[in-house]
């Protein structure tokens, strides 16, 4: 059974449409939801949590979010981008209010996390750094027995050291407690560190939904001397670079004479697929 199944999630705003987003998060997997700003990452997470009135089906460990909202949400730990809530309240007041909603709340576990994160409950939300806010959100999220952790750009605004620490904690959670993770980000280095799978959104549509390695191994970045050469090779997402043109070629395609190829990075895949605006790139489909 998948930790999370999203089917045909659709939401229309003026000027933007989240268009039939479907993907799954397997048990014990870390899935990165990636895409450019405005691609629909936060909208997707809000749709999953029913913060917005989107259509489509969402289930958590087989529990339908619409029909069994209470039971499904018990399995989810949600951490938004940091912890922006109640800045004037002490953390213990927030924790008390929060914990009351979860019968499986584990106070000892929570206190262990506070100690590990060097957090004091006597502090107020406004007194926490961005990194501390993320840690507090994670401590809350994992202390109620959540099996699926959903995070919206948790590392955004953190310094490299804090990001590294955060990634270590997430890896620890997955390895030691079997938690599944879905997190949105546009910081690809974090994904490269910890993600098993990626769901790549572009303009409200899923462009790729596959293991990270599979996405990377599918393409090469090829530099061409002229645009015509790149077009003739049917390169994806052609763009001008310092000494010519650059695009993605699928591994099976031959690299033309005079062009140079190198392994694709997640950044380069995102950039060229974004440029191409290409649909039907779902690997595995």
């Amino acid at each position: 059974m998948n930790a999370l199944t999203v089917r045909d999630l659709t939401k229309t705003y003026p000027g933007f449409k989240l268009d039939g987003v479907s993907f799954t998060v397997g048990q014990g997997r870390i899935v990165g939801l990636i895409g450019a700003n405005g691609a629909g990452k936060s909208t997707t997470l809000k749709g999953i949590l029913r913060l917005i009135s989107a259509t489509g089906e969402v289930s958590v460990y087989g529990k339908d979010m619409r029909a069994e909202e209470f039971a499904a949400k018990q399995l989810i730990g949600y951490a938004g981008g940091g912890f922006r809530f109640y800045p004037m309240k002490r953390l213990d007041a927030i924790r008390k209010a929060y914990a009351a909603f979860f019968p499986a709340w584990d106070q000892e576990k929570y206190e262990r996390y506070l100690a590990r994160f060097d957090l004091s409950e006597e502090k107020r939300g406004k007194e926490l750094s961005d990194g501390m806010k993320v840690k507090f959100a994670v401590a809350l999220a994992v202390s109620h027995g959540a099996k699926l952790l959903i995070m919206d750009e948790p590392t955004s605004g953190l310094d490299p050291l804090s990001r590294e620490e955060f990634c270590d904690h997430i890896l620890g959670l997955v390895r030691n407690e079997g938690i599944s993770v879905l997190f949105s980000t546009h910081i690809t280095s974090d994904l490269m560190r910890i993600a098993d799978d990626v769901v790549y959104l572009s303009r409200g549509k899923v462009l790729a939904d596959c293991p990270l390695e599979q996405l990377l191994s599918r393409y090469r970045v090829v530099r061409f001397g002229a645009r015509g050469q790149a077009e003739a090779a049917r390169a994806i997402g052609i763009k001008a670079v310092k000494n010519g043109y650059e695009g993605l070629l699928e591994r099976g395609n031959a690299v033309p004479d005079g062009a140079s190829a190198e392994d694709a990075t997640l950044d380069s895949v995102m950039i060229h697929l974004e440029i191409a605006g290409r649909e039907g790139e779902k690997c595995g489909n």
């Binding site: 949590l49 029913r50 949400k73 809530f85 909603f101």
Partner: peptide
Amino acid sequence: AFTCALPVKK
């Protein structure tokens, strides 16, 4: 947003 992410019916 905080409340709606809790296990409650919206």
